[in-house]
Simulated scan of single mutants.
Amino acid sequence: MNFGKALEEMQNRKSEITFDDKVKLLLNSKSDTENKVRIIEELAELQKEIAKDLRNHLTPETRVIDTKNILEEFADVVIELHMLKEIYNISDSELDKAINEKMEKNMERLNLYK
């Protein structure tokens, strides 16, 4: 199905569109290269907001926590990571397994199991 037809079909059933459908629609609107660049940009934007927060910690008297911008960038990154999962054809079970394995390595490395 081409992008135009897919878009029209989804617009006709807007209330029924799943999150995964939206991710695929976003992916199909650009090339893999453009999508990967967008993912990198969104990661950088979250990094920038966290850096701003860290800078604010250096001057506590003027510190203002801007959770709105951090939350917005965090949401963008989560969406982009779902897109990345699709680009590389990573299943939920593969990702869950990798996350659990990584978490176990972190727990062991930090000697958090007593």
Rank of each mutant, 00 (worst) to 15 (best):
M103E: 10
L95A: 05
R38Q: 15
E104A: 09
D20Y: 03
N100Q: 15
L58R: 04
V23D: 03
N89A: 13
E72V: 09
I90W: 01
L46G: 10
I90V: 12
I70G: 00
A51R: 05
I70K: 00
M103A: 12
A75Q: 07
K30H: 15
E94N: 03
L54T: 04
I65S: 08
K68W: 05
E9C: 02
N69F: 07
N100T: 11
E9Q: 08
E80R: 14
K24I: 01
S91W: 03
S93F: 07
E73K: 08
T18I: 00
E45C: 00
A75L: 05
H57E: 08
S31Y: 03
V23G: 02
S29C: 09
K22M: 11
E49Y: 02
K68P: 00
S29D: 06
E86Q: 09
L27R: 10
L54M: 09
R109H: 13
N100G: 02
L58C: 05
V78L: 12
N100Y: 10
A98V: 07
E8R: 12
Y88W: 03
K52H: 07
T59L: 10
N35Y: 03
L54A: 06
D20Q: 10
L58Y: 04
D76P: 01
E72P: 05
E94D: 12
K85D: 05
L84D: 05
V77T: 05
